[in-house]
């Protein structure tokens, strides 16, 4: 079985500056891989480059065996369910309309209805709120809607950008409980996160991103004991 995602020497950035400097990593099928690092070190840029929102300058992105480097976001969409930072919901649409938009590429209406039922089973709060406008939701409900919308795409590989951002600790726990369920359901997940402790029990492998390059990779339990962690977060 091909890896869900394989990245080789990926370079990208904005204007004259490279933000990602030769990133290589692999997410195996049904793997849960996390990239951690402080703000401003390229985590979001990494996911945006994978989805084609930022053009790769060199290197390769292979999704489930297919080279998707340089493709437009709308073409990469069938490979990745990208849950972007800050949710990027359709604010004037209802929760259900947001979810249905997630399945935009799916022509089979019965399948869309089936997925919707699955999402409501997984995230029952959304079923209660289905008619409500996205702009009227709380932060946690917005995050869940964003995740649900990503799942509606049906893509096997999830790219999740800081799901804990701006949420209360108890809500963060709920969000991570959902991610653990998704892992159990067989999805492949690439997650970027600022706080390594959050993924300690969840991730198979963790990569430390420092100034656009991966400086350490290994199992999460070991990272917490490494010097690189302190150096990356505190400088030195």
């Amino acid at each position: 079985m091909a890896d869900a995602l394989a990245i080789q020497d990926l370079v990208s950035g904005y204007g004259a500056r490279d933000v990602l400097r030769k990133i290589s990593l692999v997410v195996p099928a049904n793997g849960f891989v996390t990239v951690v690092g402080p703000n401003g070190h390229g985590k979001t840029t990494l996911l945006r480059t994978l989805s084609g929102l930022v053009k790769a300058r060199s290197g390769r992105v292979v999704a489930a065996g297919e080279d998707v480097t340089g493709m437009a976001p709308s073409s990469v969409a069938r490979h990745f369910a990208h849950v972007p930072q800050g949710d990027m919901l359709f604010m004037q649409m209802s929760v259900e309309e947001n979810l249905v938009m997630g399945a935009w590429l799916e022509a089979d209406r019965a399948l869309v209805a089936e997925r919707l039922e699955e999402i409501y089973r997984l995230l029952p709060k959304l079923a209660e709120r289905r008619r409500q406008t996205a702009s009227s939701l709380s932060g946690g409900e917005r995050r869940m809607t964003g995740i649900g919308r990503g799942l509606m795409t049906g893509a096997k590989t999830l790219l999740i950008d800081e799901p804990s951002l701006g949420l209360a600790p108890i809500v963060i726990e709920q969000v991570y409980a959902v991610l653990a369920q998704l892992k159990a359901l067989g999805r492949s997940i690439l997650l970027v996160e600022e706080n390594p402790a959050r993924v300690e029990d969840l991730a198979d492998e963790i990569h430390l991103l420092d100034n656009g390059a991966l400086v350490w990779s290994g199992p999460p339990k070991e990272l917490l004991a490494r010097d690189e962690l302190l150096k990356t977060y505190l400088g030195g």
Partner: peptide, 14 residues
């Protein structure tokens, strides 16, 4: 409507 409300999010969905 989706593109009007959030173009990037719409593109991410195909």
């Amino acid at each position: 409507r989706a593109v009007a409300q959030n173009r990037e999010a719409a593109e991410l969905l195909g």
